[in-house]
Amino acid sequence: MFNAFLQVVSKELKGAFRRRSDILNPIWFFVIVVMLFPLAIGTEPALLKRIAPGIIWVAALLAALLSFERLFKDDFIDGSLEQLMISPYPLAWIVSAKVFAHWLLTGLPILLVSPLLGIFLSLNMDTYYALLLTLLIGTPILSLLGAIGVALTVGLRKGGILLSLIMLPLSIPILIFSTMAIEAAAYGQSYLGLLALLGAMLVASVTFAPFAIAASLRVSVS
Rank of each mutant, 00 (worst) to 15 (best):
I77N: 12
A151C: 08
I32P: 14
L135I: 09
F68C: 07
L132A: 14
I174D: 01
N3A: 15
K158L: 08
L71R: 01
F5H: 15
L117W: 06
R20Q: 14
S222A: 11
S216L: 04
I23T: 06
F17M: 14
V33K: 10
R218I: 00
S205R: 14
V203N: 06
F177T: 09
A215L: 09
F5L: 09
M180R: 14
A212W: 11
P26Y: 03
F37D: 05
Y89V: 13
L144Q: 04
T134V: 08
G118Q: 04
A92E: 09
L192A: 09
L13G: 08
K14A: 09
A4L: 11
L84V: 13
R218N: 07
I77Q: 15
I174K: 02
A63K: 04
L13P: 13
A209M: 14
P109M: 03
L170A: 13
P38R: 04
S96C: 06
Y89T: 13
L135P: 04
L62H: 08
L61H: 04
T127W: 02
A212E: 07
A204H: 01
I161Y: 03
V219M: 11
L136H: 05
L36M: 15
K11G: 09
G42F: 07
A215R: 13
T134G: 01
S21A: 11
Q83E: 06
L24W: 13
R50S: 05
V31L: 05
P26A: 02
A59S: 15
A40S: 10
P109D: 02
K11T: 11
Q189T: 11
M167S: 08
W103D: 15
S171A: 13
S10V: 12
L175P: 01
A97L: 03
R157I: 11
G188H: 01
L133I: 15
G42Q: 02
P210H: 02
L142N: 07
L135A: 08
G146D: 00
I86S: 11
K158P: 09
L135H: 12
A185R: 02
E183L: 12
K158T: 09
A215N: 14
G159S: 06
F30Q: 00
S96R: 06
N25A: 14
Q189C: 07
L48N: 07
I161N: 00
V95Q: 04
M167E: 07
I161T: 01
L47Q: 08
A130C: 10
G160S: 15
L6M: 15
G15Y: 10
H102R: 08
T43E: 09
L117K: 05
K11M: 11
A59N: 07
I27P: 03
V58D: 01
I141C: 02
P45S: 00
S220Y: 11
E69G: 08
I174C: 00
L198S: 05
A181E: 03
S220E: 09
I213A: 01
L165D: 07
L24I: 14
A184C: 03
V219I: 14
A64E: 12
D75M: 05
I174G: 03
I56W: 01
K49V: 10
L175Y: 08
N124M: 11
